[in-house]
Amino acid sequence: MITAGIDMGSRSVKVVLLEELDVNGAPQLKYGVKKAYIMMPGDMDQDVAAEKAYDEALAEAGLKREDVSAVFATGAGRKQVAFAKEGVTEMTAGAKGAVFMYPAARTVVDVGAEEGRGMKTDAEGKAIDFAGNEKCAAGAGSFAEAMSRALQMSLKEFGEASLQSDKSIPMNAQCTVFAESEVVSLIHSSTPKNDIAKAVLDAVASRVCAMVRRVGIEGEVVLIGGMVHNAGFVSSLKNAMGVDTISLPDMPEYISALGCAMIAAERQH
């Protein structure tokens, strides 16, 4: 049986085509990923983007729509996936996928482009506690992106630059708009770019950490979402949370789509 999970994020569409295998034994051998596909829709309408990403993923996997038993959607734009049988929240999908990848994970931190959130999960990957920030982007990837733009750096350079700094400059502004003016002030006061980059990523990490602390830090901590690719942020988050290790999946942006496809598979039985 093949199921599909589509994660309609604010910046990208992720599709995971999952095959349920007839294997007895370790639960992690129960599924095989047929295809993980990502598309940046740009200014395309979300419903059109969902159709296009799904069709492209199917084509790359050599499958047809009728080969897929169920399509489930998650993410901020999940309601735009008209052909999805059901929608699940980002919390449910993220926790499911993270625990599948890391069975000891009990704290899942999801930081994407638009929103960051912290979740506590049980051994089955069911979210038992969650907190996000529904108001602003200051604890998410788009904040870091806006600040890297102000420093005329790519996000990758921005993350690497922050690792070169050992200074802690507090950023007081809670809002992206005001934070940008704080960054401009730091630039004018000739603060090295490395230090500014660290200050920004420390600020994002501190906001994310505040959400995670609401649910409590317990067991193995897994970070999912696009911000995993930012090494500077990962380092800042470890410091903020006071943990030695954070598990980082190889393809972190697909974890919610994976969880969504797993839930789709479970609900077909």
Partner: peptide, 15 residues
């Protein structure tokens, strides 16, 4: 499940 709805901003934490 404990579901926390709300936000934290410069003036405080509202959940």
């Amino acid at each position: 499940m404990i579901a926390n709805y709300g936000y934290k901003d410069g003036s405080g934490e509202y959940y």
